[in-house]
Design a binder for these strands. Structure first.
Length: 596
RNA sequence: GGUUCCGUAGCUCAACUGGAUAGAGCAACGGCCUUCUAAGCCGUAGGUUGAAGGUUCGAGUCCUUCCGGAAUCACCA
């Protein structure tokens, strides 16, 4: 089945025969032939010309002739400049088709035994609702998990909730001061939104107080430190760290509100985790490890009592690990959670889906763990992704320029509903099924919009322009899938059963072969996406596949094609395409629909 | 200022990791529904890949310099 490998081997032999010379096969590139040329695969012969001292054309001819004789699947070849285009015969494509066309796991590898990849994503703060930036994080984490899983490695999805710290105390304080007796239930507000509003309120009041102090003659630095609000928040953090019952009670209650809100958002997005960690449970472990490192002389203590790591040997600055008051910082916590995760899962890899603004943080984390001689220091892998920007620039929670996750999802579903109703094609299904359809189309459109972009690049979202439902979008792909199923519903039943025998004298036409060629590529696309941690390859591939099918569909009759073999073949080809579309969409976390 | 990343059609994104004439969608314009779903298909127009050098058979991709943008360099997370 691996025709590329076979061609490479034969090519190797041919060169040995003709030139009496061994050539490193790895430098031979076999790629897909571009559409404007005839052929299926192309061998670039330029790299060989120097070695073999022949012109590209001459060499192409020689190799082409040799391969034509030695590889039975090759039907013909042609040489254009230094490119040797190889066309495979009808039987090769038919055999491939017959073998694979009904396998719903086509492209997926058998699960391999081995230690899991632990992949952390989402990682919300409990003081504000999720926004579009979090959506990108969640979708990337979820999709990458699915893709890695498809390559046969086991995965564990973990969430790390940032549920402690000064920012949490700010919201608690604001609620105690100005929100007495109000709850998400009494106000019928989603819990995370309810709590987030108090964070914003705190920042507003704090800002006001600071500017009042500045008017009274304090410097800006003094004012930000001396404002009673921030002092009270710090006081509350101390109380929290000393487990003051009243503070803990409020903290637990407000966090619970937030979690109920998050759960709704996760459900709507279709995101789940194998395990959720809470920083309130893990930050002390990090502290312990740092203190041990201090004893072992890996870190040093500053005069004021703070603990640091010296990274000058790595051409970096010194990095703080414990504050002078003994409390822990972000890095301390990540040291603890890495240790905990290692003990929990014995992972082959510790992956972190975190924005590229934290590249430096993860560089340092790796080095610190290495200095501590942790066996997992080499297993840390930061999947760094770019920011979602608005036309005005970066989203800022405090400035209210964020695109709220729930609002955006709701808008997408509503748009899906409006378009569906306008087209009026789905009258015969129940209300529940319609709701389900709007959800799948709307949320699918959003997911695709995010995932089709290369993760490492920043991307732009313009709230004034709605996300498209035409062109390179999920609705386009889902529509293609629905069309396929519309045909399959009308197909003769025996043509949906397992295939018996082969076709007699079935010649595949050019559109059919284009489709087969694309379907043939699918396993490689999964491999590539997994290797590069890039779901965008899956997205763009699926779009090309759907486009190819639509062209095929437009130019060829399926159910009314004259010959029975052709009808059977085309129905199965449509079904095969449908299987791959559903499979690929699943890797993006997008659900398909049978009609729309 | 140091470090890292990014500049591709009016806009949003591709380009199989150095390969053929840089491709799609949106927006604009024109054509195709008495035939399996027109959320579709076909066509027109749109480019000195930020700029200049260099490396080689061959550069959007690699190297150097410059221009423009972003991130980061916290006793924030």
């Amino acid at each position: 089945m691996d025709i590329k490998k076979a061609i490479k081997e034969k090519l190797h032999e041919a060169i040995e025969d003709i030139f009496d010379l061994k050539v490193d096969v790895s430098q031979i590139i076999i790629q897909k032939t571009k559409k404007e040329f005839s052929g299926d695969f192309t061998i670039v012969v330029f790299p060989l010309t120097k070695l073999l001292k022949k012109s590209p054309e001459e060499l192409g001819e020689l190799i082409g002739e040799a391969l034509l004789k030695s590889v039975k699947e090759i039907k013909s070849y042609n040489v254009i400049k230094g490119f040797l285009n190889i066309e495979l015969n009808n039987d090769f494509w038919l055999d491939f088709f017959i073998e694979q066309h009904s396998d719903v796991y086509y492209g997926y590898k058998e699960p391999k035994p081995g230690d899991p990849v632990v992949i952390e994503f989402s990682s919300p703060n409990t003081n504000k609702p999720l926004h579009l930036g979090h959506i990108r994080n969640n979708l990337l984490g979820d999709s990458i998990s699915r893709i890695i899983d498809a390559t046969g490695r086991s995965i564990k999805k973990v969430n790390l909730v940032n549920d402690r710290g000064i920012h949490i105390c700010k919201t608690m304080l604001a609620w105690q001061k100005w929100g007495k007796n109000k709850t998400p239930y009494s106000t019928e507000k989603k819990g995370d939104k309810f709590v987030g509003d108090f964070y914003i309120l705190f920042e507003k009041e704090y800002k006001k107080e600071v500017s009042e102090l500045i008017e009274k003659g304090q410097s800006k630095d003094e004012a930000t430190k001396n404002a009673t609000l921030i002092l009270e928040a710090k006081e509350m953090l101390k109380k929290w760290e000393s487990s003051d019952p009243e503070t803990i009670r409020t903290w637990e209650m407000m966090n619970d509100w937030v979690y109920r809100g998050f759960e709704k958002t996760y459900n709507k997005l279709g995101i789940s985790f194998d395990k959720t960690y809470y920083e309130s449970d893990t930050y002390l472990l990090g502290k312990k490890i740092v203190e041990q490192g201090l004893k072992d002389g890996v870190f040093y203590r500053d005069e004021n009592g703070s603990v640091w790591v010296d990274l000058s040997g790595e051409k970096l600055d010194n990095k703080l690990l414990l504050r002078s008051d003994g409390t822990s910082v972000y890095m301390t916590q990540d040291i603890g959670t890495a240790e905990l995760r290692y003990k929990d899962f014995n992972p082959s890899e510790l992956m972190y889906v975190v924005g590229n603004e934290q590249n430096y943080h993860f560089d340092v984390l790796k080095i610190v763990l290495k200095k501590l001689n942790k066996p997992y220091s080499k297993k840390i892998n930061h999947l760094s992704y770019g920011m979602v920007e608005l036309p005005e620039g970066k989203m800022k929670s405090r400035e209210g320029t964020v695109v709220d996750a729930d609002d955006l999802m709701q808008l997408m579903v509503k748009t899906a509903e409006e378009i569906t109703k306008e087209l009026g094609k789905i009258d015969e299904i129940t209300e529940d099924q319609k709701e389900d359809l709007y959800n799948k189309v709307g949320i699918g459109a959003l997911k695709y919009f995010i995932l089709k972009v290369d993760p490492k690049k920043n991307m732009l979202f313009n709230p004034k322009e709605s996300i498209d439902f035409n062109g390179n979008t999920a609705p386009f792909i889902l529509y293609t899938y629905a069309r396929i199923h519309s045909v399959l519903r009308k197909a003769p039943k025996d043509m949906l059963l397992p295939i018996k025998g082969k076709y007699d004298n079935l010649e595949i036409n050019s559109k059919e072969k284009e489709l087969l060629r694309m379907l043939f590529d699918y396993p490689e696309v999964i491999e590539e996406s997994a290797a590069e941690l890039n779901p965008a390859h899956i997205a763009n591939y699926t779009y090309e596949l759907a486009k190819e099918f639509n062209q095929f569909y437009h130019e060829n009759q399926i159910l009314n094609a004259g010959n029975k073999d052709i009808i059977d073949f085309r129905i199965r080809l449509a079904s095969f395409t449908g299987i791959v579309i559903r499979s690929a969409m699943n890797l993006l976390g997008i659900n398909v629909v049978d009609r729309m």
